[in-house]
């Protein structure tokens, strides 16, 4: 699928702020499954934009507005084409014990510091385990929406998995964080993915929709023979594998490695945040302009 994406964020401060420094991780990645055709960032007040690729390979755009201002808008535009990914491998559990797998898995098998205490997830972890790693991956993507309600507002950007367990509800970020732990504790390396989801209504009637940034995850599966292990995307918010509606920005161990916007400004003013993501299909077959 081909999309144009416009991700606009506006901060309105109740008093002038200065030295407003921000890092954006909002540009679509180019991977075997998608190609970012063009992308651009504009900020107001105007500022010089600096770009680099971080440790995880995510494109980061940085800027700073030093003079006093009471409003900041960040406007990200991109065009991207996604394609079907090949069928994932279906390795045995034993295939995850090889040196090649462990090397590729690296930090994506390690626990993080803010995981729920021992025991709290034992039941879920056992329920998540399937006959093999691929089955487990798919099972996790079903298990979480079965057990937890998708409900915005009960958790916030800094919530932990324990918060999700306590509330019994959360959003995609929380679902992804939980899925990461369930997979890692089953010996499957897993990484958090930040991106955009073309969440069109089921009847396919809309080509241009308002969405939010989205989070899902990728699990690492050993490939047959001497093949390199493969990252396979699953979406525990929407069940099943990630597909051509998913546009990836980047990945990390958890949300904090790929936040869409991270910033800090001088002063103690508080801010009103307004953010919107509009995704438009450019290759639609149902009557809209191409």
């Amino acid at each position: 699928m081909r999309f144009s994406i416009r991700y606009r964020t506006e901060y309105q401060y109740d008093a002038p702020v200065a030295d407003n420094l921000n890092s954006l991780r909002a540009l679509p990645a180019t991977t075997p499954a998608q190609r970012c055709e063009e992308s651009g960032v504009r900020v107001d007040p105007e500022a010089r934009l600096i770009q680099h690729n971080d440790y995880f390979g995510t494109r980061v755009v940085e800027f700073g507005v030093s003079r006093p201002h009471d409003r900041l808008t960040i406007d990200v535009r991109a065009k991207v084409e996604t394609s079907e990914t090949p069928e994932p491998p279906d390795p045995s559990w034993e295939a995850l014990a090889t040196d090649a797998y462990r090397r590729a898995a690296a930090e994506y098998l390690l626990p993080s510091d803010d995981e729920p205490l021992n025991g709290a997830l034992d039941g879920l972890r056992a329920d998540a385990r399937g006959d093999g790693p691929l089955a487990t991956l798919l099972r996790v993507s079903e298990l979480i929406p079965d057990r937890f309600e998708y409900r915005p507002g009960v958790t916030y950007v800094g919530s932990t998995v324990q918060d999700l367990l306590d509330a019994g509800a959360g959003v995609c970020q929380d679902f992804a964080h939980l899925a990461l732990i369930l997979l890692r504790r089953n010996g499957i390396a897993a990484r958090y993915v930040s991106g955009y989801l073309f969440a069109a209504p089921p009847d396919d009637s809309e080509d241009s929709i308002e969405v939010n940034t989205h989070a899902w995850l990728e699990g690492l599966l050993a490939a047959p023979g001497d093949g390199a292990p493969v990252w396979v995307g699953i979406d525990p918010t929407n069940r099943g594998r990630a597909g051509t509606q998913h546009v990836k920005i980047g990945h990390g161990r958890r949300y904090a490695d790929v936040p869409p916007i991270k910033g800090v400004y001088r002063g103690s003013a508080s801010a009103e945040l307004e953010a919107s993501v509009r995704m438009t299909r450019l290759d639609s077959g149902n009557g809209a302009a191409p």
């Binding site: 969440a199 940034t213 989205h214 800090v264």
Partner: peptide, 15 residues
């Protein structure tokens, strides 16, 4: 003093 920019929770869902 410094203030952290408000971050945005990732919360899209399809359908």
């Amino acid at each position: 003093s410094w203030t952290g920019q408000q971050e945005q929770q990732q919360q899209e869902r399809s359908g």
